[in-house]
Nucleic acid binder design. Structure first.
Length: 617
DNA sequence: TGGGAGTCAATATG
DNA sequence: CATATTGACTCCCA
């Protein structure tokens, strides 16, 4: 039975399409092993405890892979009504090119853009969008060829095409592995097993999203725009807030819940535009985000009207290049010294961690569901003139919403009612803090190793695993779910953070050269400098794309091997096991921490799941 | 129901 | 401190 089910579901697994990660090697788990005493994690489990379980829990399938993306898509993009809007949007946007101001800026920006395709993000929000859908737009005479976009659009609708060229492949993982293999994993060396195969590297959407991006550049910054992105000196920066405000933001989300409440994300622009400038692009330099424009003509938003279809419309009509958008946001935050927490809470009504994650691993627009709202907010924010953007940050939530016309902070869907779980102590009366379970090294490694082989272990298997690792079944289930999802995202393991990317570009002169003056460049660099990370996250820093890291790779490979061998060894299993057990309880182990630390030094830990990283071999 | 999506928010890392 | 990671929640959907 399982198998059948899995098979069906497996599609997702296939998705894991992550790009070149393959090449990367990420061996997280393995890395750990190295220094670890090499205790075999496998040991923990009874030799073939898995064998007892059903034989092919996982399944089959895989092959279908590509499907996933495609499947999801359809719904959104296809929405019929949208179509109508789309055109509008385009039209409004189009003009941008004609804008005087726009053109000005655009020029600089454009150049930038042209350089490395991947990296540049448009200077204005416009660039973030890709007006897909609307064929009509083509008609327009864009300065830029729409064709690319359109094309994309077609794809989108059609199937996943994804921006990034996700390809369907079926990585090994997907395929069903049988318990046997898993057990071997646990108990023996899996050199061979390791999935090395597969890999088709794919980029999720990252590879070259650009096509989707529309190039129009409308200048948002208040006229400013030297660098196009507003690099100019950190203009006004965000003033560190008086703390106090923050709370409000934070709370909001939680208080309201119900995900459905989401409202129209309003288009900041809309409201703002009224405040600031006219809605239409032309009126001022301020660009109204295309999306906004689009919508406007058609209907009026009532922020309150949560049911307002407009929301949907907007989403459908416009294709926001999330990756580009995230780069832009990251840049803006850095440039103006806006902490993620502030931006996340005030503008997005989300937590800092969420924002960080989104920025680093943006899902392609066409794959987003309700998550689009968050990106819309980002989009709407960047679409505002600088002054407005900063002002908004200082406002209180309500004000922001009011001014922006945005719906009230959309509560996160998952608002958590503080009901924490039992696991720890059941008697936490009030809202105690939810202690967070941290897997022991062994637990984690074991889980990751299993995950490599089987992304979707059967219930039984999960149960077995749970028992052996002394974890709750739910914990194990959560692990796999999270692992699947995260591996699927393509975490940009191989790439630096958006901000880093920008920084690199500038450093390299890729961008800077084009239109920036030396001074500008300096400023830019300076700005970036702040965040240019050191070698810390080695993995990430190395730019995965390049093959320059051969050395690194070699090291990793070695380590992986080592890791695998270690696995086999497993002498100290017992100890580990005990540790593991102990950890389950709320007891942190110093030893482990130490071990981890050590390990990390040697092998970069991307923190990704094995699946994502496999590729090595 | 189970799988997913979107997040939270506690922790880790820097 | 700020940002990154990540186990677990809540809500949805098939």
């Amino acid at each position: 039975m399982e198998s059948s089910r899995t098979a069906a579901t497996s599609t997702n697994g296939t998705e894991k399409s992550r790009r070149r990660n393959t090449d990367y090697l990420q061996i997280d788990p393995s890395s750990t092993f190295i220094n670890n005493t090499g205790r075999g994690f496998a040991e923990e489990l009874p030799e073939n405890f898995l064998d007892t379980i059903s034989p092919h829990p996982i399944t089959p399938s895989a092959s279908t892979s590509s499907a996933t993306s495609a499947t999801e898509e359809p719904a959104t993009s296809s929405a019929p009504q949208l179509a109508s809007l789309a055109p509008m949007s385009m039209s409004s946007e189009q003009p941008s090119s004609s804008f005087s101001s726009a053109s000005l800026l655009s020029s600089s920006y454009e150049t930038i853009k042209n350089e490395p395709e991947d990296y540049r993000f448009s200077g204005s929000t416009a660039g973030l969008l890709s007006p897909l859908h609307v064929d009509s737009r083509r008609r327009e005479s864009h300065d830029f060829n729409t064709s690319p976009y359109i094309k994309e659009e077609e794809d989108l609708d059609g199937s996943h095409l994804l921006m990034g060229g996700i390809r369907p492949d079926t990585p090994t993982n997907d395929r069903s592995t049988d318990l046997g293999s898993i057990s071997s994993l646990l108990n023996e060396d899996h050199h061979t097993n390791t999935i090395g195969q597969s890999p088709s590297p794919r980029s999720t959407f990252g590879s070259d999203p650009t096509p989707m991006i529309q190039r129009q550049l409308i200048k948002n910054e208040d006229g400013v725009s030297p660098g196009s992105m507003g690099f100019s000196k950190n203009h006004q920066g965000y003033q560190k807030p008086r703390n106090g405000d923050r709370m409000e933001y934070e709370k909001a989300p939680y208080q309201r819940n119900s995900r459905k409440q989401k409202k129209p994300l309003g288009l900041l622009n809309q409201a703002l535009s009224s405040v600031i400038s006219t809605p239409t692009i032309s009126s001022s330099n301020i660009p109204t985000p295309p999306s906004a424009h689009i919508a406007q003509p058609r209907r009026i938003y009532s922020t309150q009207d949560s049911n307002d279809p407009l929301n949907a419309e907007i989403g459908d009509d416009i294709y926001i290049d999330t990756k580009d958008l995230c780069k832009r946001i990251a840049f803006e935050l850095k440039n103006h010294s806006i902490p993620q927490a502030i931006f996340a809470e005030r503008i997005l009504c989300r937590s800092q961690g969420t924002l960080s994650d989104l920025l680093r691993n943006p899902k392609p627009w066409n794959k987003l569901k309700s998550g689009r709202e968050t990106f819309r907010r980002m989009y709407n924010w960047v679409a505002q003139p600088l002054a407005t953007r900063l002002a908004i940050l200082d406002m209180k939530t309500e004000d922001v919403n009011r001014a922006s016309g945005m719906s009230p902070p959309t509560p996160a869907q998952n608002v958590r009612t503080h009901s924490f779980r039992r696991s720890t102590s059941d008697h936490d009366g009030p809202v105690s803090k939810r202690p967070r379970l941290v897997f022991t090294d062994i637990q984690k490694r074991t889980l990751q190793a299993i995950f490599k082989e089987t992304q979707r272990p059967s219930r039984e298997m999960q149960q077995t695993i749970a028992e052996h690792l002394r974890l709750d079944l739910s914990t194990v289930a959560n692990f796999f779910m999270n692992a699947r999802r995260r591996s699927r995202l393509g975490g940009n393991i191989d790439e630096p953070t958006p901000f880093q990317q920008m920084a690199e570009m500038y450093k390299e002169g890729a961008i800077a050269t084009s239109n920036h003056s030396a001074e500008q460049r300096e400023m830019i660099e300076r700005g970036f400098g702040v965040s240019i990370p050191g070698p810390s996250h080695s993995g990430e820093l190395l730019n995965g794309d390049s093959h320059e890291d051969d050395e690194e790779l070699d090291e990793l490979n070695d380590s992986e091997l080592a890791y695998e061998e270690d696995v086999e060894i497993g002498d100290e299993e017992e100890e580990d096991e005990e540790q593991a057990n102990g950890d389950i309880l709320p007891t942190p182990k110093v030893e482990e921490l130490e071990e981890k630390t050590v390990i990390k030094e040697e092998a970069p830990d991307d923190g990704e799941y094995g699946a994502t990283k496999l590729a090595a071999n």
